[in-house]
Amino acid sequence: MTALGVLLLAAVILLVFVVLRRRSPAVFRRIEAYERLRKAIGLAVEGGTRLHVSVGRGDLLTGRGGSALAGLAMLRRLSEQTSFSDQPPIVTSGDASLAILSQDALQAGYRAAGAEEQYRFTTGRLTGLTPFAFAAGTVPIIHDEKISANVVIGDLGPESALLAEAARLENVDLIAASDNLSAQAVLYASSQEPLIGEELFSAGAYLGAGASHDASLQTQDLLRWLIILAMLGGAVLKVLGIGF
């Protein structure tokens, strides 16, 4: 029941913040990776270069689906922002359902930007059905497609180091985040600007995906402090011998 209570609390806070955020924009701390990403988007549009976006290989039916959904939200925003680029972005994924959803997100982004006719089915690709197959299938894209920046946000494992290595060989940016801590460690060392932990889920808000994303992030902030208080309070109570 605790879980249910937390869930309902989170939902209520989220909805409240969604309403509030529609009235006034939120201010979030600066995250260098997103600054870099914005720059990369601008470069892709202005310079006619191509972005490579990967939403990872998170199986939606597992607990790793959350990061996949976050990646899709980011992709939706990115596709809208870069749809007018001479070189439309290429999207890769390592899960079939995710690949289909990424195509949807791409198409929706193009549609929102009024450029649906430029959408190509083949720009949303499944590159492999196993983690390393996905990574191995993505590496040639980084090498071949004249990518100006790689944006990898989703569920990835240590294989993300391969993507980082390919990006390094091509001397292009890699902005990557994963819910997998091992991958975070790898990406911390490999990417230009690391995205750590839950910063993965802030992509939408930082890319201006809308009030709901801002609200989501603010809810996250609020819940985090509530959790901190709960932990500290609970620990003190335990020490005092008050069980619960």
């Binding site: 989170a10 939902a11 959350g66 990061s67 959904l69 976050a70 839950e198 889920f201 994303h213 996250q220």
Partner: peptide, 24 residues
Amino acid sequence: IGVALGTLLTGLRVLLGIDRPYGG
């Protein structure tokens, strides 16, 4: 915990119909 929080909120956005990746 942070990742779980992010996952929770992302999932909630979908369940509340705010994010609709399936509907484009």
